[in-house]
Design a protein around this nucleic acid. Structure first.
Ligand SMILES: [Zn+2]
Ligand SMILES: [Zn+2]
Ligand SMILES: [Zn+2]
Ligand SMILES: [Zn+2]
Lengths: 173, 173
DNA sequence: GATATGTATGTGATACTATAACACGTCAAG
DNA sequence: CTTGACGTGTTATAGTATCACATACATATC
């Protein structure tokens, strides 16, 4: 699922979403996603304030999901507020804007690796190393929409979360 | 997704899983699922004790998801223990045995309408009437498994939960 | 039948996750 | 300058889930 920007061609991580599981230049993932989020925020007239931006940066540090309280601890250590709403509000903003996703199963949040793209993500969660990858789920959503339609149900939002073993951890075992 | 028992032919709910959204003889859903769970428990040598059985009955009362504390309140009113572990332990047992499912997104649990069948369920949750239907998701799982395999990820368990409008509520709006 | 063993339940305490409600500061529009 | 919308900080509280230990009960063994 490549970008629609010129940048896409130069970005292995963007052309291989599931790079999350492979060795890669993660700085690239991170700065790219952040830059795109900033551009989108401007375009939409919403404000990527210091707290919000910092939370996104924290989420972008790794391909993991973080609990709201883990984020909060980091924020507090950096001089931001130290009460739950500080973290939850920033996370809610990021999710509303599609800059982050909630991983229901883990009660946790992860940065979106494809902000701005109209994507229906499925999450692959390694139960050993906790890495979370965002897999392209268009075919999955299509199948799900079809199954729902058979009983007349109209889907508005879907959570697709898979737990299992990433290539590295499957290999070790 | 009909049963593999003779009963299947006589059971509209079993042949039309998404009957959850339609008017139907719910007593049938309920007694059937309970009977099948009992048989499975015997076959597996596990014990469907009074608490566990009662929790399953409570979940079976409606095609809804119930929070652990809602279940606990009911249990307590009936003379069982009134502390959280009582409910959580029974719910965990039911989930382990495939007699109930956890709906992550709602922090809630719902009775399985197809106990014993090897099913990969997707849940259709109506955001208006709160009805939860268990849709056959074999094609969805197939698509998901395929997407995961492309990055070498091996899926062990998946949560597929869709939020939207059931036929009735979509019609009203 | 008595004893031992594993399993299930009851209970108190505690940890973890999330939201409500209100005060204060900032900034831009009128 | 005033107003109103928005974002943040803070207190308090609600909701979800697990730990740890004691007790009871079933089954298996002797
Ligand atoms: Zn990366
Ligand atoms: Zn892994
Ligand atoms: Zn029914
Ligand atoms: Zn089921």
């Amino acid at each position: 699922m490549p970008h629609d920007t010129p940048h896409a061609e130069a970005c292995p991580g963007c052309q291989t979403p599931d790079l999350a599981f492979a060795q890669h230049d993660h700085g690239h993932c991170s700065t790219d996603a952040l830059a795109r989020a900033e551009a989108l925020a401007v375009a939409r007239g919403v404000r990527l304030t210091p707290v919000r931006r910092r939370v996104l940066e924290i989420l972008l540090e790794e391909h993991k999901a973080m609990g709201a309280y883990d984020v909060l601890t980091r924020l507090a250590a950096e001089g931001f507020g130290n009460q739950p709403p500080v973290a939850y509000r920033a996370l809610e903003f990021l999710e509303d804007q599609g800059f982050a996703h909630r991983i229901c199963r883990l009660n946790a949040f992860t940065a979106c690796m494809h902000p701005g793209e109209d994507h229906a993500p499925a999450f692959l969660i390694c139960r050993v190393c906790d890495t979370v990858a965002e897999a392209p789920a268009a075919p999955v959503m299509a199948a799900l929409t079809k199954a729902a339609a058979q009983s007349g149900f109209v889907i508005e939002r879907a959570n697709i979360e898979a737990l299992g073993l990433c290539p590295a951890c499957a290999g070790t075992a």
